[in-house]
């Protein structure tokens, strides 16, 4: 769990753009989260509808497949901003200053390249579906909106990557400045403590309630 709120006020234009973008990202991620919750409710309705009313939802699988696109793509930029996308830190954690920002910058540029290609060609994919009237198997719902969510989500991601690009360029020119608008490094102990609390563990008494007696 990352603390996005750590980038509070300040940071000039870059900071302001970052905050505005993050509000948008968070909104899309919440849509995705609510969608997953909706997926759960839909499944329950399907089970009980069939069991008690002999009336399963027609095209249930079609609805799930169409909706999944929103559930698994909309949060791309949000996850990127929070540093949630996985990577191997073996080397980067040992880098400091300019070298560190240089590696981060390269990662962002590579990301922008592949994301740009994907935006264009996933858009094409959606447009093929739109032009041909592509539809789902059972209920024959139109498919293009589901496919269109991919380039839209990737476009949001590319905006986020451009903000990161700006952020890392700024750090590259001034390596000791406070990072703004880039996925941040979290305070390790604070993080562990927060996680433990959220897991329902009594932090005041220590994680292992039997701590004094063990060993």
């Amino acid at each position: 769990m990352h603390n996005a709120a750590a980038t509070t006020a300040g940071g000039g234009a870059l900071g302001a753009i970052d905050r505005a973008m993050h509000a948008l990202e968070k909104f899309t991620a919440l849509i995705s989260g609510l969608g997953i919750f909706g997926l759960m409710l839909l499944g329950v309705v399907q089970i009980f509808g069939r069991k008690f009313f002999n009336a399963p939802i027609f095209g249930y699988i079609d609805i799930v497949e169409i909706a999944m696109s929103a559930l698994v793509f909309l949060g791309l930029a949000y996850t990127e901003r929070l540093g949630g996308h996985i990577r191997m830190e073996l080397i980067v954690t040992h880098l400091r200053g300019r070298w560190q920002w240089m590696f981060e910058l390269i990662g962002v540029i590579l990301g922008l390249i592949i994301v740009a290609v994907l935006i264009f060609y996933s858009w094409e994919h959606a447009m093929r579906a739109y032009r041909s009237g592509d539809s789902t198997i059972d209920a024959q719902y139109v498919l293009w909106p589901s496919k269109m969510i991919v380039p839209v989500s990737l476009a949001l991601l590319s905006l986020r990557l451009m903000i990161s690009l700006w952020g890392y360029l700024r750090l590259l020119s001034d390596p000791d400045a406070a990072p703004i608008a880039v996925p941040e490094v979290i305070d390790v102990e604070e993080q562990a403590l927060r996680d433990a609390e959220a897991a329902g563990v009594d932090v005041e008494r220590g994680i292992a309630p039997d701590g004094g007696r063990s060993g």
């Binding site: 919750f37 799930v64 698994v72 290609v117 994907l118 996933s122 094409e124 589901s146 496919k147």
Partner: peptide, 26 residues
């Protein structure tokens, strides 16, 4: 090449059997 790559994110993610994944995460 780029055309076929552009189809993969949607076609590989949008899969009914994979829909258990978000549910199990939830």
């Amino acid at each position: 090449g780029a055309g076929i790559v552009g189809t993969i994110p949607h076609s590989k993610s949008v899969n009914y059997t994979l829909s258990v994944l978000p549910l199990f995460i939830l």
